[in-house]
Structures are given as structure tokens and as C-alpha cells.
Design a protein around this nucleic acid. Structure first.
Lengths: 130, 130
DNA sequence: TAAATCTATATGTCATTTACATATAAATGA
DNA sequence: TCATTTATATGTAAATGACATATAGATTTA
């Protein structure tokens, strides 16, 4: 309990840890899908942007993002094309598909439900206090 | 992506899965602590009750609950005593400690923060839609 | 111009977590 | 007596997560 594994950012206390902790791999999916609704992007950009999104999950590992992108493509939620390097090395540019947009809206609905359940649990705990 | 591992309850679709998915082991802690604020209890009772709490995490594995109880005790958040079997086999009865109550309130605070972050992400996604 | 750094996309791998199976044992009911 | 229920665990294979490493073109800097 209160294991220190993964608490990469130094100075991170239990509270910050509790707020951020979550299933890393799976919660990459909705964040990537959202970022791609803003327009096509390549992995490196996504990795850069994903950590700054408001989200109760940890900043994901860059390796995990690349792997997630491949899996999302295999599932048909995103598509990719190579963009020849006008500047810098070649990029694999991803675009969201209609299936991907549907997938994101499913995620959003599920998050609304999560909020409700979390609030119910919070209320239970607070009731005890008073 | 959308792996089926752990989707033990048959008929569980992606939505239900998204709502429930979370770090199993770590989210056992706040739920056990809350249940113990209701009064002393033994593992089997806790396992029975924990699945019925409103919570955006999966019903935890019974083996994981027993292991979590041991770890919580080692951390000083709960204490246990053996209760000689008046009825049925002997029970290890757990009680929450003051440190455990503090721990739970830390969890609750972190959940409030999680809700805020989740709502912020939801708002971002909805802004895109309209 | 050589070396270092930055951008970019990966793969490798080991420890932890998770899911599920199994072990143990007392009590209880058929 | 034999199966079932209550109760507390341990064992373990597979998935996940964290971090290290590989590769390579472009750009900066010494």
C-alpha cells in the first residue's frame, strides 16, 4: 500500500498520487482521441500535449503512447500516413475516424457516470464525518 | 485496446467497462477504510459489502482484499484481532485506527480533485462537439 | 567538420499488478 | 458422511507499467 513505484515526479506526495493514479494504458485512449479531434497530429506532438490536458490520470509513458496509437489504428479509431520530412525526421501523422469520434463520446459518457459514482462515495464518507 | 481481460461479469459492454475500470488494488484501500468507519468487520464481510458500494472501480478480487487488509494493517491504518468462533470458523476482525481515518479523508479530498479534473476533461470534449 | 543535441518513432525487458485457481479448515445442513 | 457455507489465505500465469535502449535524420554549437 502507498507503494512508491511510479511516483516519478519527485516531491509528489500521497495526495497528488491519489489524484493522478489510474490505469495508465487505458486512459491514454480517450486523451489521444480528444487531441485528434483538434486536428491531425503525430506521436511526438501528442506525447507533448497529453501531459497538459486536465485529466485524473498520470502523464503517460511515451512508449505507451506509441503503442496505444498502433492499437487505436488497428481498432479503426484512428488512421495514419507518413509525412515526408520537410523539417526534421519523417512523421507518422494520425487522424481520427468517425468510429474514433463515437468511441470518444462513449468515453465521455462513461466519465459522467464515474463522476456520479465518485460523488456518491464522497457523500457517503462525509456523512460519517458529521 | 478494448481488451477483454477482467471483464468477468458477462454481458458487460465497453461502456460499463469504462465506468468501472480503474486500479483495482489501490482503490480497495479507500473502500475498506470507509466500511470500517461503520464499525469493526472481518474480511469475508468486507468482501461481501465492498461490491455494493457506489464506486467507479471494479468489484475487487477477494484474494486482493485479504492482501490489502494485511498491508493496511502493516501501515497502521487498521488493526486486527482474532475472534474465537462462536459461530463458524474463526474471524480476524478489523478496526480502523485514527491514522486510518486521516488516510480516508485524504482519499476523499483526492476524489474531489479527481471529479474536478474529470469534469474539466468532459467540458473540453463537449466544447468540440457543439 | 565533428560532436552534441533535438526531433521522431519505435523495441526490449523486468517488476508489479491482476485474475483466477487452489489450499486449508471449521461449522452446518442434507 | 458428504456436500456446502463461512472464512482466510497462498500460488501463479498473463497483462500492464516503468524505464532503458535502439535507430535515424535534422539542427545547433564548438
Amino acid at each position: 500500500m502507498a507503494s512508491n513505484r511510479g511516483k516519478t515526479e519527485s516531491g509528489m506526495g500521497d495526495y497528488e498520487w491519489f489524484v493522478r493514479e489510474g490505469p495508465r494504458k487505458r486512459f491514454i485512449e480517450p486523451r489521444v482521441l480528444y487531441l485528434l479531434t483538434l486536428g491531425p497530429a503525430h506521436g511526438y506532438r501528442i506525447i507533448d500535449a497529453i501531459g497538459n490536458l486536465p485529466f485524473p490520470g498520470p502523464k503517460p509513458d511515451s512508449a505507451a503512447v506509441y503503442r496505444a496509437l498502433r492499437e487505436l489504428e488497428q481498432s479503426g479509431f484512428i488512421r495514419s500516413r507518413w509525412e515526408g520530412g520537410e523539417k526534421g525526421p519523417a512523421k507518422r501523422v494520425y487522424t481520427i475516424t468517425p468510429a474514433g469520434r463515437k468511441r470518444l463520446s462513449l468515453w465521455v459518457d462513461s466519465f459522467k457516470e464515474r463522476v456520479k459514482l465518485l460523488e456518491a462515495f464522497i457523500r457517503l464518507c462525509e456523512k460519517r464525518k458529521t
